[in-house]
Design a binder for these strands. Structure first.
Lengths: 348, 348
DNA sequence: CATGTGGAGAAAAACGTTTAACTGAGCGCG
DNA sequence: CGCGCTCAGTTAAACGTTTTTCTCCACATG
C-alpha cells in the first residue's frame, strides 16, 4: 500500500504506456529503486564492470530498458571529463567543398555515438577563435578542424584536446587530406593525352600548401613536354584578379587552363563565356575538387575528385582513436584522388 | 619544501604567467582562492546576484578575467538543467538550400553564446530519430528542425524541449518560413509582364506544403490571363520523372516552365539543353529558392529568393526566447520573398 | 538596553554520474 | 578454528556549479 503511494511519483515517469516520457528522463536512481539495488551497482552493471552478478545485471539492464533510461551526459561529463561530443570547425559552409564533408563527419560520428558541434568561422580568424573557445567551454573531447589561417594561432584553445586537421596540414598536428601532388600529375598526364602542350595556370594561393602541391604535381610531371605559357595566382574563393582575366583573354598560345580549384575554374569559365570565348572549343579548362557545381555548369567541368567521404570518415576515426587514449604521433593520412572526365576539355 | 610540493598541483593551473593554462581550465574554486572568498560568493558575483558588495565583486571579476576563467558548462548544465547548446536537425546538407541556413544559424547562435549541435539525417527518418535521441541525451536546450517526414513521428524525442521548425510547418509547432504563396504570385506577375500566357508546371510534391503554396500562388494570381498547359509533380530533389521529360520536349504551347524549386528547374534546364532546346530562346524557365547553383548554370536562373539569413536568424531568436521561458503560442513567422531576374526568361 | 532588520558573505546541499573504499558472506585451506 | 581471499554488493566521495539556508555583524528603533 504505502509502497505504491511512495512509488507513485517515481513510476509516473516511464511506466505509463511504456514509451511515454513525461518531461524528466529516468535517472540511474529510478533504475536502482525499481530493481531494489544501489545506484553504484546499476552504474557498474550498465558499464559492464565485473563486480555484479549475472542475475542482478540482467534485471538492471531490463529495468533500464523499460524505463527508457539514458545516461545524463552532462553528469557523465562531470565525472569522467568526457562529453562524447566533438567540434567540427569549418571556414565556410557556403563553399561547396564543405557541406559533404560536414555531412560525412556528422554521420560517421553519430555511428560512434559522438555528437558533432558545428562552428562556421565565415573565414574569420576571430570567429574561429570564438568558436574554439565555445567548444572548449562545452568540453568537447576533440576537434576536427579545417583552419582558416596559414598558421595555428599561438595561444590556441585546444586545451590539450586531440585535434585532427582536414585538408590543411600544420606542423605538429595530425591531418587527413588528398594527394594533391598526385592530382596535379593526373592532370598533366590527361592534358598530354589530349594533346595540350602549352597551358596557362590559374594556381591557388602560394600560402596554401595544397594549392602548391597541385601546381607542383602538374608542373613537374612532364616538364619537357608541357610548357607553361603563363601563371597567375588566384585565391581559393575563385575571385579572379585583373591579371587573371587578362591572361584568359589573351591566352598566349595556351590551349588549356589549369585552375587551382573548381571555384577558380568555374569563374574562369564564366568570364570566358561572357567574352565570347567558347569552352572547350576555343580553350579547355580543368579544375580541382569536383564540387557539386562542377556537374552543373556547362560545359560540365573536367576535374580531380577528392574522396570527401573517405576523408571525413577517416578524420572521425582518427579522432576517436585519440579520444580513446591512443597517443599516436601526429601523422598525415593521404588519400588518392581520381580524375573525372567531363566536357570542358577538347582533344587537339 | 613539502608545502611547495603539495601546492604544486593546485597552483600550477592558473597562477604561472597569468594567462597560461596548462590543460585544466581554471575553476570557480581557483577564483575564490585567489580572491580569498567563498565559491558561493564568486558564483553570486559572476551571475550578478545582489548579495555581494561592490568591492568584492570587482575583485572577483578581475580575478576571473586574470585566470581566464570560463564556467564549466557540464557543471552548469547539471545544476541548472540548461546546456546552452541547441540542436540543428537538417535533412541533407548537400542540398544547396541548407548550408547557408546552417551557417547563419550557427553564427547567430554563437552570438548568443549557444553552441550548435548538427544532425544531418540524410533524408532518412531513422537517421533523424537517432539524431534527436542523441541530442536529447546531450540535453540540448532546444531544437531547430527542418523535418524530413510529412508528419512529426508520434513518440518523438523532443522531451519537452522547445522546437522551432524551419521551412516546413507541422501542426502544433512554431515555424519560420518564406511566403511561398507570395512567391508564386510574384512569378505569375513576372510571367505576365513578359508576355507568357501559356505555361507548363513542374510543381513540387503534393505532400510538401510549401510546394503547394508556390503552385497555388502562381495558379490563382491571374487565372484568366495565364493558362496552365500541363502540370507534372516532381520531387524536391529535382529528379525528373518520365512524364516531366516528355512534357518538356512536347511543351504543348507552353512558353514558360515554372518549376517547384531551383533543383527541378536546373534539371529541366539540363534536360532541355541536352535535347537541343534552347533556353530561353525556345522556352523560358523559372525556379524557386535562389540556391547558389542558380547563379552558375547558364543561362543563369531567374528565380524567387528566400531570405535565408533572415529565416535562420529569426529561428534562433525565436528559440532563444523560448529557452528563456517565454511560452508563446506556436505561431508561424513568414518572410517576404523577392524575385531575382536573370537570363532564363525571354520576353515574348 | 533589548530587539528586530537587513546586508554581506559562508556553509552546505543538490544536480546525476563514476569510482574508490569498504563490508560481509561464503569458501578453501593450513 | 581462524586466516585470507574472492565475490557481490554498498557507502561515500568526487566532479564544478548554483541555490538554499545559515551566520554574523552593524545599525536603527522601541
Amino acid at each position: 500500500m504505502f509502497s505504491q503511494v511512495y512509488s507513485g511519483p517515481t513510476r509516473s515517469k516511464g511506466d505509463r504506456l511504456g514509451a511515454d516520457r513525461e518531461r524528466q528522463m529516468a535517472t540511474i536512481k529510478d533504475v536502482a529503486a525499481r530493481v531494489g539495488v544501489s545506484v553504484a551497482t546499476v552504474s557498474n552493471a550498465l558499464n559492464g564492470k565485473p563486480n555484479v552478478g549475472s542475475a542482478v545485471r540482467r534485471k538492471v539492464l531490463r529495468a533500464a530498458k523499460d524505463l527508457g533510461y539514458r545516461p545524463h551526459r552532462a553528469a557523465q561529463a562531470m565525472r569522467k571529463g568526457r562529453t562524447r561530443a566533438i567540434g567540427l570547425v569549418l571556414p565556410d559552409l557556403t563553399n561547396p567543398f564543405f557541406p559533404q564533408l560536414a555531412q560525412t563527419v556528422e554521420n560517421k560520428a553519430r555511428k560512434l555515438g559522438l555528437l558533432v558541434c558545428l562552428i562556421d568561422s565565415q573565414d574569420s580568424p576571430e570567429g574561429e577563435a570564438d568558436g574554439l573557445t565555445l567548444l572548449a567551454q562545452h568540453g568537447v573531447d576533440g576537434i576536427i578542424w579545417c583552419p582558416v589561417g596559414p598558421r595555428i594561432p599561438r595561444p590556441i584553445h585546444t586545451f590539450g584536446r586531440p585535434v585532427v586537421l582536414i585538408d590543411r596540414p600544420r606542423p605538429g598536428f595530425a591531418v587527413v587530406h588528398s594527394n594533391n601532388l598526385m592530382g596535379g600529375q593526373l592532370l598533366a598526364q590527361y592534358a598530354l593525352r589530349h594533346g595540350h602542350t602549352r597551358v596557362g595556370l590559374l594556381s591557388g594561393p602560394r600560402s596554401v600548401e595544397s594549392a602548391q602541391q597541385r601546381r607542383n604535381g602538374f608542373v613537374t610531371a612532364h616538364p619537357q613536354q608541357i610548357e607553361i605559357a603563363w601563371e597567375v595566382r588566384v585565391g581559393f574563393d575563385g575571385i579572379l584578379p585583373p591579371e587573371a582575366c587578362a591572361a584568359l583573354l589573351e591566352r598566349r598560345g595556351a590551349t588549356l587552363v589549369v585552375a587551382g580549384n573548381d571555384l577558380i575554374a568555374i569563374n574562369a569559365l564564366r568570364w570566358l563565356t561572357q567574352h565570347d570565348v567558347r569552352v572547350p572549343e576555343d580553350v579547355s579548362i580543368v579544375g580541382f575538387d569536383d564540387i557539386s557545381w562542377a556537374r552543373i555548369v556547362s560545359p560540365r567541368l573536367t576535374t580531380v575528385a577528392q574522396p570527401l567521404v573517405a576523408i571525413g570518415t577517416r578524420a572521425v576515426e582518427l579522432l576517436e582513436e585519440r579520444l580513446c587514449g591512443a597517443v599516436i604521433a601526429s601523422r598525415a593520412t593521404v588519400f588518392d584522388v581520381t580524375l573525372v572526365e567531363r566536357e570542358s576539355v577538347k582533344s587537339i
